[in-house]
Nucleic acid binder design. Structure first.
Lengths: 108, 108
DNA sequence: CTCTTAAATCAATTATACTTGATCTTATCA
DNA sequence: TGATAAGATCAAGTATAATTGATTTAAGAG
């Protein structure tokens, strides 16, 4: 029989797991670079992203999926193109204003 | 000869590396639990932390070091005891107010 | 239907990170 | 000085994550 935790503890555990996933997604400089580019460029398709970030397409897809699964970016498919953009609402919920600035162009 | 990047790019790269390290430190539910306990209890020594977090001492030391190296917690040694506490200033610089609440007791 | 292009997925490799138990270091106290 | 207790570190094993190149899927265009 499993030990039952008080509600407050199970809620906390669930929060920790949720944020673990989000922080894992953020814990990679290449993904931070992708986020920075998406914030500067707005919605961008993968084929345009490849030359900008300078990584092979399969690698980029891999990192985009991690950000997408963590709800940090949003995907919109148009025909054979996939457009990705920052999920600003979510990012603002997680990061400080100071840090959100990292993902905004200097002149904004 | 190395390609020279514009200053703005090298600065961004440096930022990405800095935050990669901090997010990596945050990207683990056990470390989030440790942070939560430290925030609730305030400065706490390792020997008191062991039974609370329920992990072997060497494992706890390992995770505390990762948080310490990322400047997310602060260490103070008193004799043979090591007291750790949250570096609230740093945490507030990184995380949203909403998220900082995760690390505060419900009644504060 | 066939060809092309965009993008996702797969399998195999490589690289990091975490866990474990033992050992080492240092401070305190008898 | 010798014993003890706190906590850091180490080495070996295990588990995850990232990289790579090839393959697959699906949407046009002709």
């Amino acid at each position: 029989m499993l030990k039952e935790l008080p509600l407050i503890e199970t809620q906390l555990e669930a929060s920790f797991e949720k944020y673990e996933k989000k922080f894992k997604a953020l814990a990679d400089k290449k993904r931070l670079q992708i986020m920075n580019i998406l914030t500067e460029q707005g919605s961008t398709c993968v084929c345009d992203l490849v030359p900008i970030v300078g990584m092979p397409q399969s690698k980029l897809s891999y990192h985009l999926k991690i950000l997408l699964d963590a709800d940090i970016i949003i995907k919109e498919t148009k025909g054979t193109w996939s457009y990705y953009e920052i999920n600003m609402k979510e990012v603002n919920h997680i990061l400080s204003e100071e840090l959100c600035c990292l993902f905004k162009p200097a002149n904004s």
